[in-house]
């Protein structure tokens, strides 16, 4: 029976990192109203950054996290400013194709630079574990999940208590009103896109502790982020984390009870169900 406890616990910890990644997608969609189809690709790019730094400098990915998050923030900011901004207000499918193009370029650029092989980051504590009552928790997952929780909390405080965070929320709630009171919406959109990508950078760095980096992971992660966001619900930050945990646990259980290769079958099945049962898309708000 304890084996189930271990699996559920490991699923919860992994799920928190999924949740952090999905939070990035949720923030971008919630404010800028653009579906970032390159989400998984950017996550994998962050994983490779962590791998390069761990390999060449021998630095623990958790320590390079702020650096990678900052790099992704810059990428996201530039992406919004130079590519996405002209597409605000254009038909949904054109925005989608723009980000599809970005995802194709990032994915295959990674393939071109790093090749198709899986890249593994080794840390000293890779095989350590904590004992918690009858449960055994992987040290790696505990650290990653703790970091994800801290970042999510920081994001919550940012949106709740800072002027900038309030301004960004204003753009999401009432765009016209935000413009009327003189907010620089274009800058705020770019900051939001950057912020969403910084979350991607952070979650990618944490994810590389648990999974090897490989270009083909990108598509899976993009879809995973969508699944989590759609299940967890937009606008609710806790929702993304809860959705992440739900997916993390169900994947862990499916991987244990069925075949590991079948676990994504489960996620896609879940995505189909959720899409059908939530007809208005993310949390009943019309996209």
């Amino acid at each position: 029976m304890t084996v189930y406890l271990d699996i559920v616990a490991s699923g919860v910890l992994t799920g928190l990192v999924y949740g952090l990644m999905a939070l990035g997608l949720s923030v971008i969609f919630g404010v800028v109203r653009v579906v970032n189809f390159a989400h998984g690709e950017l996550t994998v790019a962050a994983m490779y950054m962590a791998w390069v730094m761990a390999g060449s400098l021998g630095v623990d990915p958790i320590l390079t996290l702020p650096l990678i998050a900052a790099a992704l923030f810059a990428i996201g900011y530039a992406l919004q400013r130079h590519l996405v901004e002209p597409f605000i207000g254009r038909p949904e499918h054109e925005q989608f194709m723009l980000l599809l193009a970005v995802s194709i370029i990032v994915l295959n650029g990674l393939l071109l630079v790093f090749g198709p092989d899986a890249r593994h980051v080794a840390v000293d504590y890779a095989y350590d574990s904590f004992e918690l009552g009858p449960m055994l928790l992987d040290t790696v997952r505990v650290y990653a999940a703790a970091a994800a929780m801290v970042l999510a909390l920081g994001l919550y405080l940012f949106f709740r208590f800072t002027d900038l965070g309030t301004a960004i929320r204003a753009c999401a709630d009432n765009l016209l009103g935000a413009q009327v009171v003189g907010l620089d919406v274009r800058r705020l959109y770019a900051l939001t896109f950057g912020l969403g990508c910084a979350l991607v950078g952070a979650s990618g760095t944490l994810m590389v502790l648990m999974r090897d980096a490989t270009p083909i992971l990108a598509v899976q992660l993009t879809l995973l982020a969508f699944i989590v966001v759609i299940i967890g619900g937009l606008g609710s930050m806790a929702g993304a984390l809860v959705g992440g945990v739900l997916i993390g646990v169900s994947e862990a259980l499916a991987g244990f009870l069925l075949m590991p290769s079948l676990k994504s079958l489960f996620s896609y099945g879940l995505l189909i169900l959720v899409l059908l049962l939530r007809p208005e898309g993310l949390m009943g708000r019309r996209a």
Binding site: H93, L223, F226, S261, L265, G269, I272, L275, L276
Partner: peptide, 28 residues
Amino acid sequence: GFRFRVNGVYFALLTIAFAEFTRILFDH
């Protein structure tokens, strides 16, 4: 998709999900 009013990008996601689902089925 049409009965449950899955529109636009969500319809695209639905088609991806079915294709990926089938891919894994055929894999096994």
